[in-house]
Design a protein around this nucleic acid. Structure first.
Lengths: 134, 134
DNA sequence: CAAAATTTAAACACCTTTCGTTAACTTACT
DNA sequence: AGTAAGTTAACGAAAGGTGTTTAAATTTTG
């Protein structure tokens, strides 16, 4: 059994960064170049991105694709879209309108600007009415 | 940029498994041996475990180690332990007794048998009183 | 029990990741 | 223009992951 995705080096750098140190300061502490600190930090971020994406896949395994919401859609129009699609396949959504908007805001905080969607989003639903944004 | 941790092969096997197929049936479909399907599935599970562990590390980055709960502790004794430790460092826990037990059950479903902890657990807390089990 | 299903171990070829170096480059700010 | 922070590219060496096979062992199920 092995640990998570991050190497000791990567965790070390992330910890120092969390404390607010610059790459140069960290480089001095761990005795290497700032360029190397940069690449270590970057690959740590890449590993974290992949970990998230991996767990997202598990959600879509349990669920079926419900619909796609195109760029530019008004955030407040999304619940109605989802309710209507879910009704077509006879699944009752677990969230009401407001909870759905909150769920959306929390799970995809970077996917909109103001009230407008800034990227395409796929919506998935489980048989129990749980909603995921892919 | 690459996708998640899972290879195409691994996702393929997981999808078929979700449909209830046996390893032999999958082996026939994807034209390989059942032993290979087994290893692929197993390494997929390992990758998922690592993805989870990686994201858990991010939580502990924000938080400080609160206490350790030893094997054998009664589940119902845990909240009192946590409240008492949190009080020592003047942080108000975000959960009440019942919510804490539920939180524990949900985030570490395999860490206890009946009411007894089956392994050591480290408890982490953030400044806002959020609790994580490491 | 016997058959079917699943797991494990060892070994191999191939490919990717990681850490490290050096040097050049972009920002942002004064 | 000068300084500090961060990023990027090219490259090498060491380490680790993946898909396979084969064969043996174990668990589940009828």
């Amino acid at each position: 059994m092995k640990d998570g995705l991050l190497t000791d080096r990567q965790m070390e750098v992330l910890r120092y960064r969390k404390q607010g140190l610059t790459q140069q300061q960290i480089a001095d502490i761990i005795a290497t170049s700032k360029a190397n600190v940069c690449t270590i930090e970057k690959s740590a971020m890449e590993n974290i991105r992949r970990a998230k994406e991996t767990l997202d896949f598990l959600y879509t395994l349990d669920s079926t694709h419900l619909c796609n919401i195109p760029t530019g859609t008004d955030l407040f129009d999304i619940p109605a879209l989802i309710f209507s699609e879910a009704e077509k396949i006879s699944i009752k959504v677990k969230y009401d309108t407001i909870a759905l908007i909150n769920h959306m805001r929390e799970s995809r905080p970077k996917s909109y600007k103001g009230r407008s969607l800034s990227e395409n989003i796929d919506v998935y639903i489980t048989s129990t009415g749980e909603i995921y944004f892919g």
